[in-house]
Design a protein around this nucleic acid. Structure first.
Lengths: 148, 148
DNA sequence: CACATTGGGCAAGCTGCTTGAGTATATGAG
DNA sequence: CTCATATACTCAAGCAGCTTGCCCAATGTG
């Protein structure tokens, strides 16, 4: 495979990902949740459905635990999440979505569905799902947040 | 298309893109260019092959012109680019890659080819190029840099 | 019961971007 | 030609968001 193919694949991934994240975020803001950034959305996806600890969130974002804790502070202050004592470990705290957090999550899902609708029209649902499955095979895990 | 499909597609894109960018960056550092971040690489791709202005770079990154100018400052100080007077417009300056900048660009291309090699093995070259083309159809243009 | 490990958070610092202001050149209307 | 406006760039200050360094409490390990 040529060098230029590798570079154009990278550019294509960056462009599609950036555009999709931006569209979802715009939709979320349009639903009235205008005090959040895409990063907060990445936290929500980790919190749903059963909650998570600060350490879990830090690993999911690729941040330090302190940074994750600060983000949880902010989300708590804005009413999207709440800290509960952890049932199994008194050191830890279980972070859960509040009702407002759930409403925002549903708004994000609706925005995502809306954002990819033109993609469905272009490629068809079948191809798009196949594309997703291929991508998942290529990069199954790892932190969501790019590190640059 | 279900809400959850849109979300899993987003997650798949984020994961694959983040992993690829990270791998390329690791390769570039391994080639000895350890004073750069992936963002600088995005600048290089815009500069090759014919150079660009600060305004071009700002649009490409999705930054302000001031931020782009600062990044060019840094790259100039580190010897990767040089500012030349613009042949057609005395207000403007044409930014060009130095020899060191070109060496780094080639190292990035080699690292990208290396990084996707397991992908080629998993999907095959044919499918991978098709995936790239589909992505390019979905999101043809726009700034490279995600805004979060 | 020591002692290392793990989960969490406070405080300070710094990087990387933005906002604000200013200069030089270009462009266009009259 | 002249003046008004727009464009290309940069300097300086501000600041958001993350890291580093430190600390405490609870858990597990022998």
């Amino acid at each position: 495979m040529k060098y230029s193919d590798a570079m154009s694949l990278t550019a294509a991934l960056l462009s599609a990902t950036g555009s999709l994240v931006q569209d979802i975020h715009t939709g979320v803001v349009a639903h009235g949740f205008d005090d959040l950034r895409p990063t907060h959305g990445f936290v929500f996806t980790r919190l749903a459905p059963d909650g998570a600890t600060v350490t879990d969130i830090a690993a999911h974002l690729g941040f330090t635990r302190q940074a994750a804790s600060q983000i949880v502070d902010e989300l708590e202050r804005k009413g999207y999440v709440e800290r509960r004592p952890h049932p199994d470990d008194a050191r830890s705290r279980l972070i859960l979505l509040t009702e407002r957090g759930w409403r925002c999550t549903r708004a994000a899902e609706a925005s995502a569905a809306e954002a990819i609708r033109p993609w469905v029209e272009m490629l068809g649902e079948r191809r798009l799902l196949a594309l997703r499955d291929e991508l998942l095979r290529l990069a199954p895990a790892g932190p969501i947040r790019p590190s640059w």
